[in-house]
């Protein structure tokens, strides 16, 4: 029997090569001292941090600003996204009220509309909002966050409702008998129990906001207001060759934290995925 494992490793190693080539290429491009695409190959021709220092000193691409913008926009959006999503899920899972079923169906229905195609309407809406509340207008992080939150009562609510349904009702009922209010049940009992799922949903929404280029691209046009996705895309969209090292260095610094979090949360991820999450 022992000699029959080799083919499994053969397939595994082939898959690893496929999975890792683009990532190794990215690392190699980031370390490439020349910093152009044409001089980058799979094995770095030298190790230099020139691309990184260029990245931090290029006045046309304020990378640190992009990074901070991204952290603020994705961080605030995903935390509020989860909070709004889970309170909706709590109502749908635990409370009985009129319009519960149509509400659930309605939420699902709205999600089926490719909502960024409603971009024109959003754009016009935010010109108006910005003329009254400049802090929420176009080219502001707050405006974009608010738009992202429009989708908070969506897929996440369904996903989290499914999870809350698996938490025994007896737990909150006994708390209610002991005199806990609905808010106490929600904050003190349900939220702690749902924490693994909240973390996974939060991570998925963080990453989906991180990857979002359409709304961010239309809303944030000023160089200092951009997010990483919009900014880095701008670095290579016109010319793939010259600024490639800078793009690779910036991408690596953006990607590494996410990758580490994914690896750290690996075992939660499987649970979250099989509960029906799709990476956005």
């Amino acid at each position: 029997m022992k000699d029959r494992l080799w083919w499994r490793h053969l397939i595994g190693i082939a898959a690893l090569v496929f999975a890792l080539v683009p990532i190794i290429f990215l690392v190699s491009a980031a370390l490439n001292p020349v910093g152009t695409l044409s001089t980058t190959s799979l094995i770095p021709s030298g190790a230099s941090l020139a691309n990184f220092s260029k990245l931090f000193h290029d006045p046309n691409s304020p990378y640190v600003r992009w990074y901070v913008n991204t952290l603020v926009i994705c961080g605030v959006s995903s935390v509020l996204n989860v909070l709004i999503g889970v309170s909706g899920a709590y109502a749908f899972s635990r409370l009985r009220f009129r319009g519960r079923r149509p509400g659930l169906t309605g939420i699902l229905l709205v999600q089926m509309f490719p909502n960024f195609l409603a971009l024109t309407a959003l754009y016009l809406l935010f010109i108006n909002i910005g003329s009254v509340l400049p802090a929420f207008g176009l080219n502001t992080s707050l405006g974009l966050i608010v738009v992202y939150l429009g989708g908070a009562m969506g897929v996440n609510t369904w996903l989290l409702k499914g999870y809350l349904d698996t938490i025994p009702v007896e737990l909150d009922e006994s708390a209610r008998i002991d005199g806990a209010t609905e808010a106490q049940v929600f904050f003190r009992i349900i939220l702690p129990l749902a924490r693994p799922m909240l973390v996974v949903v939060g991570l998925f929404s963080f990453v989906s906001f991180l990857n979002e280029i359409i709304l961010a691209g239309v809303f944030l046009t000023g160089s200092a207001h951009k997010t990483l996705a919009v900014g880095l895309y701008g670095l290579v969209s016109g010319n793939h060759n010259t600024d490639y090292g800078e793009f690779a260095a910036g991408s690596l610094l953006a990607g590494i934290p996410v990758v580490l979090i994914y690896l750290y949360l690996q075992k939660y991820l499987v649970k979250g995925l099989t509960a029906g999450a799709v990476k956005g």
Partner: peptide, 13 residues
């Protein structure tokens, strides 16, 4: 862990 990397890397990158 290694096969997870393509999934963990932000897709736009």
């Amino acid at each position: 862990s290694l096969l997870l990397l393509p999934y963990a890397m932000p897709a736009f990158i």
